[in-house]
Design a protein around this nucleic acid. Sequence first.
DNA 1: TTATTAATGCAACTTAGTTGCAAAAATAGA
DNA 2: TCTATTTTTGCAACTAAGTTGCATTAATAA
Lengths: 126, 126
Amino acid sequence: MGIKRKTKSLNSLLEIFEQSDEALSAIDLVERLNSKMNKTTVYRILERLVDEGVIHAFKGKEGVQWYARCKDCTASNHTDLHPHFQCRDCGKTECLDLQLSMPKVSNHRIDSAEMLLVGQCEDCLA
Amino acid sequence: MGIKRKTKSLNSLLEIFEQSDEALSAIDLVERLNSKMNKTTVYRILERLVDEGVIHAFKGKEGVQWYARCKDCTASNHTDLHPHFQCRDCGKTECLDLQLSMPKVSNHRIDSAEMLLVGQCEDCLA
DNA sequence: TTATTAATGCAACTTAGTTGCAAAAATAGA
DNA sequence: TCTATTTTTGCAACTAAGTTGCATTAATAA
């Protein structure tokens, strides 16, 4: 499973994530890479990186896919549970440095939790 | 602003929400009402009901729109902040009776927060 | 060096939701 | 009431995000 070969395409994506502290949307990545590779390839590599625990995926405010580098996750262990913030004005999206606790709900088994905060980022507040 | 006329279409939707304790997806509502009204109308009425504070909207696990009746909200005051749960197996989606507190993030203004839990519901656990 | 497996590209498709515009229905004013 | 105005609805066409099938290319293994 996961990444079998570290190809040029995969490295291009990895590089982008290493150079960015913010989260990146699939749409944005497809656009940025559209001269280098096909959008199908972008989506497939993103999926692989998520499976490998290199990045994690979440939904932004419009319901589209966003990705960010994982700090404390591996393929088998996705432990870090933090909220994401998206700026309503500039769209900047970031992982927040807050550890959420998984809420317990009686008679329910919770597999995953996702929290999205929407508001104004530092730059757009000024 | 908001609802100017209580039409037949609007009442059909209101009725569905009154008869259901679960959340309902836009997709599902469009399907259920497709003999009675156009999907554009469904989306427009849902938007109006949200504006009026009658229902609230949130994104399900696939990033699509879900709606549920508001308990403690009005057009001007959307106070109730609770997580939503969606069953990974049967898709059942519900408001959880837990009050979340709006996280404070320095240098950010938070307007809204949304939390989605995914797992197995009571029925699918058995 | 050939066989096998994995990665990629491309075009076509799907799905959720939106838009523009014309028609119908409701309301208001005289 | 009758007419003018406003609101609601339907419809068809469109958009945007993401997916699928399949053929091609590239990498690895035997």
